[in-house]
């Protein structure tokens, strides 16, 4: 299942060099998370670009704007190096942890960038340049509403699993109950057989990254399988099954959870 993107792409051609694409192609920039409501203590936003980008000064082309179109200043962590994938097609935009976390000076002085109940949009400006110096050409805009801050641990014990039928390639669907970090859902969940070998297959995400679909390459076998959950799995606020990202002041030190949880996959005969 392809994630339904809510990106609104504005076709505003702003020109470019002769060797550059003449007109922007809608749908080229993808922004995660895709859910319409995101927690006020959202930790990260990911931007996928259609081609390798120029690595410097990208944050000058990315803005968080409020409903009135005003830019929210100082929302993002300005690291010395921007957080690009090695191929420079994915940018991790981290909301400043000093503002996200309770008790820190920045949080107490100016608060979080996102206020519960307010509407926002992440805007990737069409003037951002790719590695060849060509501009994207069109703004990509993803709107969302800030919901309550998320201080709940991801709770795999509450997740719901479907029961695929033996001899089919029906997807195994795990309903996590709420949106989670899309990279965590890619990296931290696997189907293993009894020997601990990963079952080959394909992962799709749905419903604003709250559903995890696993379609096996081979037909579902008539043998025990399980879904394993690496403890580094995170929700949108960076909470992990073992610890909140933001441990309120005064609580005891967090403890590392068991490194991996697992759930048996029930396969219907």
């Amino acid at each position: 299942m392809r994630c339904a993107l809510t990106s609104l792409l504005l076709a505003i051609a702003v020109g470019g060099a002769a060797a550059c694409p003449v007109s922007p192609t809608p749908g080229q920039v993808e922004i995660y998370p895709t859910a319409e409501e995101l927690p006020a203590n959202l930790l990260r936003i990911f931007v996928y670009f259609p081609r390798p980008m120029e690595r410097t000064d990208i944050l000058g082309h990315i803005a968080l704007v409020d409903e009135a179109g005003r830019e929210v200043e100082g929302a993002f962590l300005n690291n010395r190096y921007d957080l690009w994938s090695p191929d420079a097609t994915r940018l991790t935009v981290m909301l400043d942890p000093g503002r996200v976390k309770t008790g820190l000076a920045a949080h107490d002085a100016i608060g979080r960038a996102l206020e519960e109940g307010q509407r926002y949009a992440l805007v990737v400006r069409g003037g951002a340049k790719d590695a060849q110096g060509c501009i994207l050409g069109a703004d990509a805009v993803q709107a969302f509403v800030a919901g309550p801050p998320d201080f709940d641990l991801p709770a795999p014990q509450d997740w719901a699993l479907t029961r695929p039928e033996v001899g089919t390639r029906d997807p195994l669907v795990v309903d996590l109950g709420s949106p989670h970090d899309h990279l965590s859902m890619v990296y931290r969940l696997r189907v293993l057989d009894a020997d601990g070998t990963p079952v080959p297959g394909r992962i799709d995400l749905g419903a604003g990254e709250s559903l995890w679909h696993f379609t096996p390459v081979a037909l579902w076998p008539d043998k025990p399988l399980r879904v394993i959950i690496d403890h580094r799995l995170e929700d949108l606020a960076g909470n992990r099954p073992g610890a909140l990202f933001d441990q309120p002041i005064g609580t005891p030190a967090s403890r590392w959870a068991a490194e991996i949880d697992w759930m048996p996959v029930q396969i219907t005969q």
Binding site: R2, C3, E30, R80, L83, T89, I203
Partner: peptide, 21 residues
Amino acid sequence: LQDAADDGITFWRDIPAASFT
């Protein structure tokens, strides 16, 4: 220093590796 899935699992879209600054 690159993190990438190397266990034969594919994804609905290209997921580039993560690196390490």
